[in-house]
């Protein structure tokens, strides 16, 4: 088990964006985090990444509580925010290289990774000159570069062209095969269902469904829109919206 969330709460004023969320994230698993807008998906990912402070509950990585663990432990978490946080005045290579070094990794990892994500040609371009899709890919590269064990992607597959989406899927699957736990929120169900090992559905800050393993295989066997059907069924059947 890579990470556990135990009763995670994030409060914005009077509103509870995440309300007592408890999940365990396993190594080698790609988890799809679904939910309507405002369900608390992005807040959950940002809280795990340490970008926002939880109001309650516990987040542990490899058994260590992130609230008390050394800051260096956060080097094992990669986070692609929405929109991705990029140093606008760095080149693509500089940005990803800086993140790699911050995680204690060699910058020699950077160019091969950019190559795999189809970013080698723009490695020397400043981030501020990039298109939306390119920024998404640079955010993805920064999230997975180095010794990360937990990769958190907030809508990172949005805006990718078919070639970029395929290379992103391949890179993420490889990262999972090497033992990383990957959690990604998205509304692109068709893209995501081709690669996910687990589906979590959130609404109003709570977990409303958790499908994995044989149950997920059975679901996916039903057809190309199986996850979308599951999502819509949950919304209607449970009266979430």
């Amino acid at each position: 088990m890579v990470a556990t969330l135990d009763g995670l709460v994030v409060q914005y004023g009077k509103r509870r964006a995440v309300d007592g969320l408890s999940i365990a994230l396993d190594a080698g698993e790609i988890t799809l985090l679904l939910g309507p807008n405002g369900a608390g998906k992005s807040t959950t990912l940002a809280a795990i990444a340490g970008a926002i402070l939880p109001s309650g509950g516990r987040i542990a990585l490899g058994g260590e509580d992130l609230a008390t663990a050394p800051r260096a432990l956060r080097g094992k978490i990669g986070f692609a925010d929405q929109p991705p946080a990029l140093y606008e005045y760095f080149t693509v290579e500089e940005h990803v290289g800086f993140v790699a070094q911050a995680r204690g990794a060699s910058t020699a990892l950077v160019l091969p990774l950019l190559e795999r994500l189809g970013l080698a040609k723009i490695a020397q371009r400043p981030c501020r000159e990039l298109s939306f899709g390119m920024r998404q890919r640079v955010g993805l590269a920064a999230a997975i570069v180095g010794p990360v064990e937990l990769v958190l992607l907030d809508e990172t597959l949005n805006g990718l062209d078919p070639h970029a989406a395929r290379s992103a899927r391949t890179v993420l699957r490889d990262a999972a095969d090497q033992g990383a736990a990957i959690v990604m929120s998205t509304h692109l169900l068709g893209v995501a269902e081709r690669m996910c090992d687990r589906v979590l559905v959130m609404d109003k800050g709570k977990l409303v469904s958790d499908v994995r393993g044989a149950e997920l295989a059975t679901l996916l066997a039903k057809g190309p829109t199986a996850i979308e059907d599951l999502y819509l069924a949950l919304i209607v059947d449970e009266g979430v919206q």
């Binding site: 940002a46 970008a51 800051r71 432990l73 986070f79 990029l86 911050a102 995680r103």
Partner: peptide, 14 residues
């Protein structure tokens, strides 16, 4: 503050 410091990049620096 951005664009010099990016808190949302969540890097492991104290």
């Amino acid at each position: 503050v951005p664009p010099i410091e990016l808190p949302r990049l969540a890097l492991p620096f104290p």
